[in-house]
Design a protein around this nucleic acid. Sequence first.
DNA 1: AACACGTGGTG
DNA 2: TCACCAAGTGT
Length: 332
Amino acid sequence: MRANVAGRLLQHYVDKSRSLPWRSPPGSPAPDPYRVWLSEVMLQQTTVAAVAPRFERFIARWPTVQALAAAPDEDVLGEWAGLGYYARARNLIACGREVAERGGFPDTEAELRKLPGVGDYTAAAIAAIAFGRRAVVIDSNVERVAARLQGLANPTKSQLREAVEAITPDERSGDFAQAMMDLGATICRPRSPLCADCPLRSDCAAFASGSPELFPKPKAKRRKPVRYGIARWIERDGTIWLVRRPSRGLLGGMAALPGPDWTDEKPEPREVLAQVRHVFTHFALELSIVRSDEAPGDGWWQPIRSLDQAGLPTLYRRAVDAVLSSGVKIAA
DNA sequence: AACACGTGGTG
DNA sequence: TCACCAAGTGT
């Protein structure tokens, strides 16, 4: 019985609730839209464990969207450093200012969807969780759960949408969405699903097939090429020269060590202070850090002792760590 | 419709 | 070591 699926799922979620640490339990009054928006954006392609402490820092520093909107770009980007997918932080800044300007968050999915950095998933999640609207919330967990319930190995977006729509309740669709995502994260996992613990297994075609992990079929992966880069260590009086990367593209807007564009060809061997290998989404980078006294352009002298406050993304934080722990003499 | 876009945890 | 993958969005 389809009508029962949502009820059983919600009951399971209430009993074994694993909701986000900062979110009130299922059935509570609707949470602050600002907090829902901020955490949902942070959670895009990012684990709960990684988000939790960063979310708390953001909220402590900027308790309202008005406070966030008033913050300088570099403060927000610096607070985001290490979280990855930095376009999210750039969109967060733009979105926060737009929302503060208009006096608050819109309360419908269609209006939320127009905000920068708010796509189909996030708009539906905010509408359902923060505003109690019925919305069909679809993330990769929900897709997997739906594909398995229906036994679809190669589902289309519209098949998935229809499947989720059919079981989304009119009331508490926000709790329902969180229950679906929670189920996907803890029981209906991509690999080795724990069907024995699943409240929906009696309705599940994939379980009935005996090989639930084959639904949906995993996508083919592409090889990662290696690229090469040089970063300059320009040191003076216990400081090093940092720059801000161009505001678009990879690590856009983030603080960085200066250096030329990265290349596909391995550079000629030279004396390096340190080397780091860093894996991005679609390529791996081998970055060599070389000492330099080149006359700097735009940038600033960052005290070596306070490098951790520079808001460096992980690539450059690792590069700096590699130099500082290399034993090379640094006048810090 | 593909592809760009980060990072850390896990097996 | 390494592949997989995470409460996706923008172009």
